[in-house]
Design a protein around this nucleic acid. Structure first.
Lengths: 128, 128
DNA sequence: CTGCGTGCAAATGCTTTGCAAAGAC
DNA sequence: GTCTTTGCAAAGCATTTGCACGCAG
């Protein structure tokens, strides 16, 4: 059930896209709401959810599922990379490149397809 | 708010623990319910949830959050390892050892604490 | 007997959906 | 004016919780 592309340009939609572009890091729907409301204050969370799923369908956003956290989304199309989450403030940042071996050792009969890698620590903005 | 240890041995509790021990892989609450019901059929999902969180508090279980999936839990105390999820049947398996470099490269000012690593592919039990 | 643990059903929190009204074109 | 998009409120789902009863010790 692919959505037909008949997109109308709305204040809300633009504000949501702008939030992702300006923050340039994975945002949860709540975070996206807060940032987008700075540009378009009449904006409901339902609209954020609806637009995010459209943008994911259009491959403009990709979901980033940090274990144990609400889903976040980031602008799609970037090179293969992983994510860092600050254990103090919870913010997720993108890491450049990939330090992971291409083919981890798997049990007999298992076929490798891909991987996820998450690093946790303390970000530069948080006090030691 | 630590739970005082005043554990009574109940049929349900034993069945839940047995499910994790016998399957020896991460189970979601639903999966645990199904396996535990084979031993104690009068078992409600609420009891599974309650017992799982007690077992996590007691450090007998550890939560395993595969990105985009319901939480699973596995028996705690094993050596550092990671997980494999079959893209076909969804089952999660444990992998031995850790193929990940100890200290991934982080941006200036970021402090490394730990990491998560997930491998996806097709398991031996699934048709190619 | 005492009081913890369970089952049920209601409550919660996050996400999705139906519908009428607002807005894009 | 037409048809999409929005906001609100209700519906869904998974998980948690309150309460009365059953069962372990």
């Amino acid at each position: 059930m692919t959505r037909e592309i008949q997109t109308r340009r709305t204040r809300q939609k633009e504000a949501i896209r702008a939030a992702f572009l300006e923050e340039d890091r994975p945002l949860s729907p709540d975070e996206a709401l807060v940032f987008a409301q700075r540009r378009a204050d009449a904006l409901s969370i339902a609209t954020v959810y609806r637009n995010i799923s459209n943008l994911v369908e259009d491959k403009w956003l990709t979901p980033i599922q940090v274990p144990g956290c609400p889903v976040r989304y980031e602008v799609a199309g970037k090179a293969h990379h992983h994510h860092f989450q600050c254990r103090s403030c919870g913010t997720v940042h993108e890491l450049e490149g990939c330090d992971v071996p291409n083919k981890p050792h798997l049990p007999r009969g298992f076929k490798y397809l891909d991987h996820d890698f998450f690093v946790y620590g303390i970000c530069a903005a948080c006090p030691k």
